[in-house]
Simulated scan of single mutants.
Amino acid sequence: MTTPPPAALDSLQGLAFGDAFGDRWFGILRRDGVAALDERALPPEPLWRWSDDTAQAVVLVRELAEGGGAVDQDRLALRFATAYADDTHRGYGASMHDVLRRIGDGEPWRDVVAGQFDGQGSWGNGAAMRVAPLGAWHADDLDAVAEQAARQGAVSHHHPEAVAGAVAVALAAALATRGRGGPAPAQPDFLWAVADLLPDSDVRSGIRIAARMPERTSVRHAAEVLGSGYRMSGPDTVPYALWCAAGHLDDLQEGLWRTVAGRGDIDTTCAIAGGVIAARTGVAALPSAWHTAREPLPPVVAQ
């Protein structure tokens, strides 16, 4: 068993804060509309529960700890299925209900995920939502980041765009980790650095578009151009979430407020942004009210 690096644990905590914070806003926005965001009042009680984004991120960090930083795909698939069976009420998407139940029933995971959506596989954002801590874990080796992010992504998402989204988020978290203690790069510079490490894909194209956006681009415009997860795909989730993170690499709280303002799949966009930013900043600067409100995480390694 390997102890997770501090940056990976920071990233996991930031991911969980983003996930739980974003998830609480779904109901508020349905009830009160986007004007509620202008007041910047924290979501009220009850506890901010995290969703499947965090549940799977915890599983992934546990897998990395057991594997010495490497992903064993067969073991990870079973870990995801077991975590799902233990708590099915974490907001899993419809296709993941099917995938994880079938894997839990003993079907080979490769056959299950490759057969989704008429053999195309899912191009959803689930492989990206959980992966930031992996990028922080392997920040010293960007080749390992890309390889291990793709390996974990393929366990649940067969479509290459879903895997590309996961690799992009992991690389962003790795670059954020590398910058700990130094000045934050400019937003476009950070996004170009991520895009330049990716193969051709719709995800890469979206990040390149994000990097070209003028400094004063509004959240609303960025969300409309890049997509903020309404389609719950890698290409329409990851570029926006990374645009938000890149603009607030030294301020986790502001980064999450900006991300949630784009609406869309807000637990996932906030989880991605939170995981990337916290890989650099940690979570200690968040106000105590945030720490009190968010559901605690389970242990990620045996106590």
Rank of each mutant, 00 (worst) to 15 (best):
Pro188Arg: 10
Ser205Leu: 07
Ala166Asp: 01
Ala166Thr: 01
Pro183Met: 09
Val113Leu: 12
Asp87Leu: 13
Ala94Asp: 14
Leu191Gln: 05
Ala164Gln: 03
Ala149Leu: 05
Ala172Val: 03
Tyr92Asn: 04
Val163Arg: 15
Gly121Thr: 07
Phe117Ser: 09
Ala170Tyr: 12
Asp196Ala: 13
Asp196Arg: 13
Ala154Pro: 00
Val163Cys: 13
Ser201Cys: 05
Asp141Ile: 04
Arg90Ala: 07
Glu161Lys: 08
Arg178Thr: 03
Arg208Lys: 08
Arg102Cys: 14
Gly106Phe: 12
Asp143Leu: 03
Asp87Pro: 09
Gly179Lys: 02
Val167Tyr: 06
Ala132Lys: 04
Gly91Trp: 03
Val99His: 09
Thr88Ala: 15
Gly182Leu: 14
Ala173Glu: 02
Ala170Glu: 10
Asp86Cys: 08
Pro160Trp: 08
Asp111Lys: 14
Ala210Glu: 02
Met96Trp: 02
Gln148Gly: 01
Arg204Cys: 03
Gly119Lys: 04
Ser201Met: 04
Ala114His: 13
Val145Thr: 03
Gly181Ser: 07
Val131Cys: 11
Ala132Ile: 00
Asp189Val: 05
Gly153Arg: 09
Leu100Cys: 08
Ala168Ile: 03
Ala114Trp: 07
Ala150Asp: 10
Leu134His: 06
Asp202Trp: 04
Ala186Trp: 01
Glu161Ile: 08
Val167Ala: 05
Ile103Trp: 11
Gly93Leu: 11
Leu134Lys: 09
Gln148Cys: 02
Arg90Thr: 04
Arg130Pro: 05
Val145Tyr: 06
Phe117Val: 07
Ala136Cys: 00
Ala173Met: 05
Asn125Cys: 15
Phe190Tyr: 06
Ala172Phe: 05
Val145Gly: 08
Asp189Asn: 02
Met96Ile: 06
Glu161Cys: 05
Trp123Leu: 10
Ala139Trp: 12
Ser122Leu: 08
Pro183His: 12
Ala164Gly: 06
Leu134Gly: 07
Leu142Ile: 04
Asp196Asn: 12
Gln116Cys: 09
Leu142Thr: 06
Glu161Gln: 15
Val112Arg: 11
Val169Gly: 04
Ala146Val: 07
Ala132Tyr: 01
Gly93Ile: 09
Met129Pro: 02
Ala114Phe: 10
Val145Met: 07
Pro160Phe: 10
Asp98His: 13
Pro188His: 11
Ala144Gln: 10
Asp141Lys: 06
Pro183Gln: 14
Ala154Gly: 13
Pro188Asn: 12
Leu171Asn: 05
Gly124Asp: 03
Ala94Pro: 11
Ala164Cys: 06
Leu175Gln: 09
Arg204Gln: 15
Val169Gln: 05
Gly106Pro: 14
Leu198Asn: 00
Asp196Val: 00
Arg208Pro: 00
Ala170Asp: 10
Ile103His: 12
Arg178Pro: 00
Glu147Ala: 15
His157Arg: 12
Gly115Leu: 08
Gly126Asn: 11
Ala114Val: 05
Arg90Glu: 06
His158Tyr: 15
Val163Lys: 15
Asp196Met: 03
Val113Ile: 10
Val112Thr: 15
Ile103Gly: 12
Pro133Ile: 04
Trp192Arg: 15
Ala146His: 09
Trp137Gln: 08
Gly119Cys: 07
Leu100Trp: 11
Gly206Tyr: 03
Gly126Tyr: 13
Thr88Asp: 08
Gly93Trp: 11
Val194Ser: 00
Tyr92Cys: 01
Ala128Trp: 04
His89Thr: 09
Ala139Asp: 08
Trp137Met: 11
